[in-house]
Structure formats: C-alpha cells, structure tokens
C-alpha cells in the first residue's frame, strides 16, 4: 500500500507522520591496505567497493561506466589481480591489499605505461583509461611479452568506445619493449 496523491496536488508532508527515511544497514569494520597504506572503515559490508574508494577515500580515478562489471572503467587490483570494483562489496576488501589507479600511477611500471600512452596519443576521452592502465599494469607485471594476442586478451575486460583500441595496443607493446 502506498500513499496516494492526486497528480495535481503533491503537498508533501501533509498527513504524513514524520519518520526519517533510512536504509537499514549494519556497519562493520573493514580493514585493508589501500595504495600501500593501512586503512580502516566502519561501513555497510555490502556497500559497493567502488563507492567506498570514490566517496569514502576520495579516489575518483576509479570510474563507473556500467555498474555491472562489463566495461572495466572501475578496474582496481585486489590482492594483485585486476577486478571490477563496481560489483564487489566492502566485505571483499577486508584483509586485502588494494591498488587503485592513483597508486599504480606512482609505481615504476605505471609511470612507464603512462609515458607510452602519452607518446602514442592513445588517450581520447580518457574515461576508460584508468581501467586500461590497471589492466595493462597487471599484464606488464605478470607477463609483459610483446605479443598482440596476449595483450588483447589481457585487456579484453576493458571497453573503450573512442579509440578503436589500436593505439592502446601500440602503447602496451611499446611499454613491453621498454620494460625489458
């Protein structure tokens, strides 16, 4: 049963008992390492990890493109592996180590990749690029062979609508060569 209102007179508050709207949630203490710093937060364990990073820690480099794990704009490293933070919860971070793009941009290989993406003029709107940087970083760390098929595979969870991917591949290939 809802409160029926005639379309023409939405007079808010009249006849409604004052009651604060709340989202029922039980907070939990979540501890994790964020970009090499130990952090702790009291939070609804089901809150999206993406929102925690953006809202509670102000790390807005991690973007929301689709909210269902299909575009990769929200990619972070969770215990060293690239994952989409929009379909993870606070609880998934508990006791784990997280790197966001801000942390990766400070690492040696992160900087190398930024140089390469910059040199090829690969970046267009840039909304998906923090995600691409994280996935590319993981590829360089774990494999790093200059191999187009492998690179395509490593980046296959990240969608870009601007570039047609060509210059992204070129940049990662360039980084593979420079790293070795």
């Amino acid at each position: 049963m809802g409160m029926h209102l005639g379309f023409l007179f939405p007079s808010w508050g009249l006849g409604t008992r004052y009651r604060k709207s709340v989202v029922k949630e039980k907070k939990m203490k979540i501890n994790f390492i964020l970009n090499e710093n130990e952090v702790s937060i009291d939070v609804d364990p089901m809150k999206r990890l993406l929102d925690i990073l953006r809202e509670d820690f102000g790390l807005t480099g991690t973007k929301e493109g689709c909210g269902e794990g299909e575009c990769g704009a929200c990619t972070i490293l969770l215990d060293g592996k690239p994952v989409t933070s929009c379909i993870l919860n606070a609880i998934h971070a508990d006791g784990k180590e997280i790197y966001t793009v801000e942390g990766i941009a400070e690492k040696h290989i992160g900087k190398l990749l930024i140089d390469c993406f910059d040199e090829t003029n690969a970046v267009q709107c840039g909304f998906c690029f923090p995600g691409f940087l994280v996935s590319s970083y993981y590829y360089l760390k774990t494999d790093g062979e200059k191999n187009l098929d492998k690179i395509k595979k490593a980046l296959s969870g990240n969608i870009c609508r601007c570039t047609g991917y060509q210059k992204i591949f070129e940049s990662v290939m360039m980084a593979c060569v420079r790293k070795s």
Binding site: G61, T100, A105
Partner: peptide, 20 residues
C-alpha cells in the same frame, strides 16, 4: 604534439562530472 590532458586522464586526476 602530445595531448595536454593525457597524463592526468591516465593517473585519474582529471575530473569528470561525477568527480565533482
């Protein structure tokens, strides 16, 4: 010439609407 906004877009510091 390289794009002036490429690096801040890559390191996540460039602000898109939801970042304000």
């Amino acid at each position: 010439v390289r794009k002036f906004d490429a690096r801040p877009k890559l390191d996540g510091s460039w602000k898109f609407l939801d970042d304000y």
